[in-house]
Write a protein that binds this DNA or RNA. Structure first.
Lengths: 83, 83
DNA sequence: GCCAACTATGATCTTCGGATCATTTTAGCA
DNA sequence: TGCTAAAATGATCCGAAGATCATAGTTGGC
């Protein structure tokens, strides 16, 4: 599972993966982020185009941040060595 | 200017910076992304919490992508060596 | 200082996400 | 196989974003 997102679907997948790695349920994460389990589900399944603020709430709750980088500046695997 | 975003304000700043580096006006970028100059302005100035889809439209138009990484895993400057 | 280009912003309408209640479906495990 | 915890989803309301028209304000070049 990569940590790169170019679409909302990518983003949902990455967020779900990160949540599972931290052993959180959708309800846990929702509580932490101050939103609803319903919304977490919607975002993870790309059921709707979320708002950016909601995404940042989730990222903060997962202790993640966004790096905005040029596309294909490195192959996805290259980052593995760093993190 | 960093390329890290934890808030919509960060994101707006990064997007504006990226647009200027590519010598695009808000209208140019809007046309490329299939949205409105009004919306680009709103996002760059964090005048409103954008939708994620709109952000991805902008990122694609700027040939950028998102990397979701753990916070503080590296100091901001560290990425300079890579890109 | 002027003009042209660029950016910010006013107003209205429609669409859609999140909040909020809930129930159904799915999946893991004894 | 059943139970239980987790995830998905139905419905409604409200608020807010983007589309779309417009103009006002700002900035840089000459």
């Amino acid at each position: 599972m990569d940590r790169i997102a170019r679409t909302t679907k990518d983003l949902g997948n990455v967020l779900r993966e990160a949540r599972k790695i931290q052993n959180l349920t959708q309800a846990d994460l929702a509580a932490r982020a101050g939103i609803w389990q319903r919304t977490v589900s919607n975002i993870e399944t790309s059921a709707s185009g979320a708002k950016v603020d909601t995404i940042f709430d989730l990222l903060a709750a997962l202790d993640l941040e966004l790096h905005i980088v040029p596309r294909s500046k490195m192959t996805p695997g290259d980052l593995e060595d760093i993190f």
